[in-house]
């Protein structure tokens, strides 16, 4: 990955995800648990290093890299590798006191999940622009978010469920499964594409 690409992803995916996490935790709670972002530049460098290790490993093991090593991994795997890297680095720091506020405890898992989603958002927008799908690109920019399916009654909301899953896997030391996680990201992307398509169709009917 080129340095310019990573810098762009940091500014438009990771930083957005950090803002989303901070927005979700009241200031008083952040202060109480001393939730901080120390050495962020250093951590961003480490995220890139961890990403590269993960990407290299899965590319060599699981992919047909082509005769001259020219073939790459897809963006869902890229996003999954970034999720894994963010999980390893622990960007947010906080006081580990009891009783623990769950939103604080989940902060790094939420960040990891959202970083992958923000990367998907950027890639989807770029694809619309490449394909000349200007109306869909405009709709996505106007929406300025990603949507998630409703879950069945009695279950966690989709985003909360995904964050808790990341947390549970980490707590029980279960290895991060890049392939399955990437598949989940594919379905989240498809869901968003389908919903945008419906919006566009509804928009055309009402005009």
């Amino acid at each position: 990955m080129k340095a310019e690409t990573y810098n762009y992803l940091c500014a438009n995916a990771l930083d957005r995800a950090i803002e989303d996490v901070l927005q979700s935790i009241p200031l008083s709670v952040q202060k109480h648990y001393n939730l901080t972002l120390n050495n962020l530049d250093k951590k961003k460098q480490r995220i890139l290093e961890e990403y590269d290790i993960q990407r290299q490993s899965i590319r060599e093991k699981f992919f047909d890299v082509g005769e001259n090593g020219e073939k790459l991994i897809d963006i869902h795997k890229v996003s999954a590798c970034f999720t894994s890297a963010v999980l390893k680095v622990r960007v947010f720091e906080y006081s580990e006191t009891e009783p623990m506020d769950l939103s604080v405890f989940y902060s790094n898992y939420t960040l990891a999940f959202l970083t992958g989603i923000h990367i998907l958002y950027l890639c989807m927008l770029s694809d619309y622009e490449r394909n000349g799908e200007d109306k869909l690109a405009a709709l996505l920019k106007k929406q300025a978010t990603f949507v998630f399916p409703k879950t069945n009654r009695g279950h966690d909301e989709y985003l909360q469920g995904r964050v808790k899953t990341l947390a549970l896997n980490d707590i029980y030391a279960i290895d991060f499964d890049v392939l399955t996680y990437a598949d989940m990201l594919y379905w989240i992307e498809k869901y968003n594409k389908d919903e945008l398509q419906k919006l566009m169709s509804a928009d055309s009917i009402t005009k």
Partner: peptide
């Protein structure tokens, strides 16, 4: 420059 934001909601 992305203006995308995702609402986390309550745990």
């Amino acid at each position: 420059l992305s203006n995308c934001h995702i609402k986390v909601g309550d745990f």
